[in-house]
Amino acid sequence: MLKPDTLALTVTLALLTALGPLSTDMYLPSLPTIAGTLGASTAGVQLTLSSFLLGFAVGQFFYGPVADKIGRKPVLLFGLGLYVLASFLCASAQTIETLTLARFAQALGASGPIVLARAIVRDLYEGPRAGRELSRMAMIMGVVPAVAPVLGGLIAVFVGWRGIFFVMVTASLILAAVVALRLPETIRLKSPAPLSFGSILRGFAVLLRHRGYRVYVMLSMLGYGGLFAFISGSSFVLQGVYGLNELTFAFSFAFMVLGFISGTTLAQRVVGRRGLDGTIQLGVVFLAAGGLLMLACVGLGVPSSLAVTLPMTVYAVGVGLTMPQSMASAMMPFPDRAGAASSLLGICQMTFAALLGIGLGQFLGDSALPLPITISGTGVLALVIFTMTGKVRQG
């Protein structure tokens, strides 16, 4: 069995959270090709990304509270099973509408593993140790977005974009086998509250009345929102505006991933000295600096794609510093509601990112400027919110 404080458990939980990035980043290089194959517009194919995030938000409404009631493992296996089925439907889609709906269903399945991996961390660890574990998971998980676009580009070149979704089917089947055979049940005390739609909403209301919880959720939303804006818009900007092909785009995308891994690695080193809030403070500075630098480079007309990718690397360092610590801080006051706290955080995070992606998709075209405007906005707002909420966070 997988045991706490072991690399094997950390890797398993990290790979469960990596289903989300795997589901988006692997097919990013193929978005223009998919648009051509299925006869879709740029906004139409971009909707397959936003529908995934909306499905992610909807799925997280249920997974956490249900897992608080009946346990982590059976709910986790249900989510993985749904993900396998939906990934197969994605591979078989013949229209953009079918692919969009299948992506929504795929997200319903993928949302379970990421919610429950965070809840399992809260089951097993406290305080900065939980933040450090989430950072370790994020660092390992960060390898997936580094490799996924390159792998997806190669698959698309040799077997077509549908093969990408068959790889997702295989990966999730392997994870389901590991969970079924090796992962123990971690919940210590199951929730005695009746399980109903109303009880879930009342539980969420308890969480939202906690002012500190609201602050940390907003910080997580903003950091991920800027990251998703890059994920959803980068293929059109870097390929359409700067002229990169599928493989050169994939390697350029890796700059951002290396920044994220660097941020999570740095977080593990400093969280013991600076604490959760001190690490988040460092992260929001990187978020604002990266966003403003990108806005300046693109606004001044720097002709290279590095005008986008290098500032995004700085922003991604901020995401790696901010998000794991914000998640740990948000869940820390609620050991008896870890699943619900993780669910609501995910709902807010993914809904915000999906709406941001939909809005960005309406403005993307011949200019790269909408992308840095969006990313700089999220970074600066995160810095402002952190600066103005010191008393709330200390309380």
Rank of each mutant, 00 (worst) to 15 (best):
G357R: 04
L310K: 02
S342W: 00
A340F: 10
R337M: 14
A341G: 07
I358K: 15
F352V: 11
T322P: 07
M332N: 09
V319D: 01
G318N: 05
V317T: 02
A330E: 08
A338F: 08
A330I: 11
G301E: 15
T313C: 10
D336Q: 13
A353C: 04
T351L: 14
M350T: 00
P324G: 04
L344C: 07
M332R: 12
G339K: 04
I358V: 14
A330R: 00
G301Q: 09
L300Y: 01
M294N: 03
M331C: 09
S342T: 08
M323L: 06
Q349W: 13
F352K: 02
G301T: 05
P324L: 15
D336A: 15
V317P: 05
M332S: 07
V314T: 08
T322M: 12
S343C: 01
L310D: 03
G357Y: 01
A341K: 12
I358N: 11
L295Y: 15
L295M: 12
L293Y: 08
M312C: 05
L293M: 11
R337S: 01
Q325A: 12
A328L: 10
L306A: 15
G299I: 08
A307C: 07
Q325W: 10
Y315L: 12
A340Q: 15
A307N: 15
M312N: 09
P311G: 03
L321C: 02
S326F: 05
G346E: 04
M350E: 05
L293S: 10
C348H: 02
Q325T: 02
I358Y: 14
A296Y: 10
G301V: 07
M331P: 04
Q349M: 12
M312G: 01
T351N: 13
G357V: 00
F352L: 14
T313A: 09
P324E: 10
L344W: 13
